[in-house]
């Protein structure tokens, strides 16, 4: 029992070196930000290692941060060690101009549709995915709708401006 956050950090540091990941903790969950080029290697290690045993892929999704140059797209993995009941979040940033990242399908079959979903909405290109096509949207679609450059609302509606949602420009009081 009890795989602590320090254990996970120590284990990753011994295997991949100190400079691999930066860690932070948010609401009790450890988050490791790793270089996108190493995602498969790290997750494979976390899966195979007898102490880590992160063998359940809870969730896989992406986030678009248009302001982060060269790392606009963030791929977020949630892994779960069911035996010790420890969860781990892994993030890897890729540039929107060339959003390439290794697919997790060799480790988790369940990553298949989740990656297709992330591709469909964000355009993350999962290398080695067996069937990377759109899943929710029509195949003719030529853009990735969940990226931030596509506003959802009618642009003439003032009540849906960013400032109404506590972001950007002048605050609404």
């Amino acid at each position: 029992m009890a795989l602590t956050h320090d254990d996970i950090k120590a284990s990753l540091n011994t295997k991949f070196g100190e400079q691999l990941a930066s860690y932070d903790e948010s609401y009790g969950m450890l988050c490791a930000t790793i270089p996108a080029a190493k995602n498969l290697e790290v997750i494979q290690f976390l899966y195979n290692d007898e102490k880590m045993k992160f063998r359940f892929l809870t969730d896989l999704t992406a986030i678009h941060y248009p302001d982060r140059t060269q790392e606009e797209l963030c791929v977020v993995y949630h892994l779960h060690n069911l035996q010790d009941n420890t969860r781990l979040r892994i993030k890897a940033y890729v540039p929107v101009a060339q959003p390439d990242i290794q697919s997790l399908t060799p480790v988790f079959k369940g990553a298949d549709w989740l990656e297709r979903e992330a591709y469909d909405f964000f355009g993350v290109n999962f290398l080695g995915h067996p069937n990377l096509i759109r899943i929710m949207n029509v195949e003719e679609m030529d853009y990735f709708p969940l990226r931030k450059e596509y506003p959802m609302e009618d642009p003439s509606r003032r009540d849906k401006d960013d400032e109404m949602f506590g972001r950007g420009g002048s605050q609404f009081y």
Binding site: Y27, T58, D59, T61, I63, V76, H78, R89, L146
Partner: peptide
């Protein structure tokens, strides 16, 4: 902050991943 919270839905782990940037709506939620 970022929160992942889950409940046992009728079909299994129903998770909500919220990324909040302090705005009135989530920056991203999955």
């Amino acid at each position: 902050g970022e929160v992942y919270s889950c409940v046992e839905g009728a079909n299994g782990e129903l998770g909500f991943y919220i990324v909040s940037d302090g705005g009135r709506s989530p920056y991203r939620c999955h």
